[in-house]
Nucleic acid binder design. Structure first.
Lengths: 245, 245
DNA sequence: GAACTTCGTAAACACCGTTCACTGAGATCC
DNA sequence: GGATCTCAGTGAACGGTGTTTACGAAGTTC
C-alpha cells in the first residue's frame, strides 16, 4: 500500500509520537516540563535517540510551534465550515471567538506561540514567515481580506493613516489580496482602501490584547465574566468598519 | 548610624545583591539563565545559601516581578515629573511612551511580568493584587483616574457598556477614585461615567496589545517603524474620549 | 562566657541537555 | 544470498541544574 520503505514509515511514526508527547507535556505541565528525557521516557526510548530527529531541544520547541499553529488553524477551519460563505461578519465572530476559546483552553501553547521573545525561541527566519505561524496566519489573513473586501461602504477613515506606514501597509494589502485570491474569488484592489488595512491591523492589536490579558490575568481589575466585554469589543470593531448588524 | 544589627545589615545587603544579579542574568540571557547556581557563583557563595533568603527559585522569580514593577514605576515617575500637572494628555503620552520604551528595552522582563501564565509563575494571591504589579499599577491607575476625571465633556458613550460588566466596572471605578484621591485632589464620583471607565479598560487592551505584539514580533506584517502607529493609536484613544489636541 | 540564632558550606540526590563510541537491524548492491 | 552500507537506538559520560541534609562558624543575647 505505502511505497515508502519500512524504515521511513517507522521514522515518520516515531516523529509524530515525539511531537505528541511533547505537546502533552507542554499542555499538562508547562514549557519547562518539555524535557527530552521525559519525552523519551514516555516513548520507551532514551534521550539521545531524539537527536536522530531534532538538532536540539530548542529545535523541537520551534517545530512544536508550527504544529500548534496548524492545530489551531484546523480548529478555526472547523468553526468556519458551518458559517455561510456570504456571512462575513459571522465568519469574523467565529474566528475571533475560536481564537479566544483556544487560547483560554491552551494557555501554555498560547504563551509559547504568541508570547515568546525571538531569542528565547531561536530565530524564526524573518524573511519567510510574513505572519504569525503559517497555518493560523493563513486563516487570519483570509478572513481579514474577505472582511475588508466586502465592507459595505467606502468607510470614511476615522483616523488618518500615518504617512510613514503607507509602504508597509501597501505590501500587507498585497499579501491580503493574494491570500483571498488564492482561496477563490479575486478582489478588485481598488475596493481595499489603505485605511481599512490599517483598521484590520488595529483590530488584531485589540483582539490579541484582550486574549493575552485574559490568559495572563493582567486586566486591571477582576472581571467576573470577560466574554461580554470581548463580544462588545468585536461589535465595536465591526461597527467602526461600517458593519451595523 | 543604623540601629539595625550588623547581621541585619549584611542580610539586607546580600538580599539586594541576589536580586541584582538575578536581574542582570534575566536581562542578559533570559529567564532560563536565572539560575540559583549562577547567581551564587557571581556572588561568591554557594547555591544552597540562597535558600536562607528565598524558598525556591520560583519564589525568587516571583519577587523579581515586584522589583521589576517598582523599577518600571520609578522610570515612569521620572518621565511624569517633567510634565505640567495640569496637562493630562501629555501625562498620558508620557506614561504610554515610557511603557513602550521600557518594554522594548527590556523584553525579557516584560515577558516575565506581563506575559507569564499564573501557574508557571506560581499563584499571585489574587485577593491582594488588584492590579498588575503594585507600583506600576499605581501609576497606571493614577493617570487613568486623572484622565477620565478631567475629560472635557460628558462624552457620549460610543458603545454601550455590557450590562454584566456594571458591577466589576463600578468596583474598578472605586479603585480609580481611591488612587486619585490618595494622590491629592479628590474627584466627584459623578463626573466619572461608567462608559469612561470602560473605555479606559479598552485603552489598556490596545496599549498592551500593541506593545506585546511589538516585543514578541507578532504583527501580521513587517513594520519598518512602528512608532507612528503607536502614536496614531494613542491619538485615537484620546480622541475617542473627547480630547482633540 | 554560655546559650541560642542565623548564615554559609560540603556532600549528596535526582534530574537535565548534549556528545560519543558502539550495536544491531533495515536497505541496497552485486 | 551474502557483503556492504545506512541509520535508529543504546549506554556511558560530562557538566549543568534545583533542592535537602548535616554540620561548622560566626553574630546575638543573657
Amino acid at each position: 500500500m505505502t511505497e515508502a520503505t519500512r524504515r521511513e514509515r517507522l521514522r515518520a511514526e516515531t516523529e509524530r509520537d515525539i511531537r505528541r508527547q511533547a505537546r502533552a507535556l507542554l499542555v499538562s505541565h508547562g514549557r519547562d516540563a518539555v524535557t527530552l528525557r521525559a519525552i523519551a521516557r514516555e516513548l520507551g526510548i532514551t534521550a539521545p535517540a531524539l537527536y536522530r530527529y531534532y538538532d536540539s531541544r530548542e529545535d523541537l520547541l520551534r517545530r512544536l510551534v508550527d504544529d500548534i499553529c496548524t492545530d489551531l488553524a484546523v480548529e478555526l477551519d472547523t468553526d468556519l465550515a458551518v458559517i455561510p460563505a456570504d456571512d462575513i461578519t459571522a465568519q469574523v465572530y467565529a474566528v475571533c471567538h475560536g481564537f479566544r476559546r483556544w487560547a483560554l483552553a491552551h494557555p501554555q501553547e498560547f504563551a509559547l506561540v504568541f508570547a515568546s521573545t525571538e531569542d528565547t525561541l531561536g530565530i524564526c527566519r524573518p524573511d519567510q514567515r510574513a505572519q504569525v505561524g503559517d497555518q493560523f496566519g493563513r486563516i487570519f489573513l483570509q478572513v481579514a481580506g474577505r472582511l475588508i473586501a466586502s465592507h459595505p461602504a467606502p468607510t470614511p477613515p476615522h483616523t488618518d493613516v500615518p504617512e510613514s506606514l503607507h509602504a508597509d501597509l501597501e505590501s500587507f494589502r498585497a499579501v491580503l489580496l493574494d491570500t483571498v485570491a488564492a482561496q477563490g474569488e479575486p478582489v478588485d484592489p481598488e475596493v481595499l482602501p489603505l485605511s481599512a488595512v490599517y483598521h484590520i491591523t488595529q483590530s488584531w492589536v485589540r483582539l490579541y490584547g484582550h486574549v493575552a490579558l485574559e490568559v495572563f490575568g493582567r486586566f486591571p481589575f477582576a472581571i467576573g465574566n470577560p466574554e461580554p466585554m470581548f463580544d462588545s469589543m468585536l461589535a465595536q470593531i465591526l461597527a467602526e468598519m461600517g458593519f451595523t448588524d
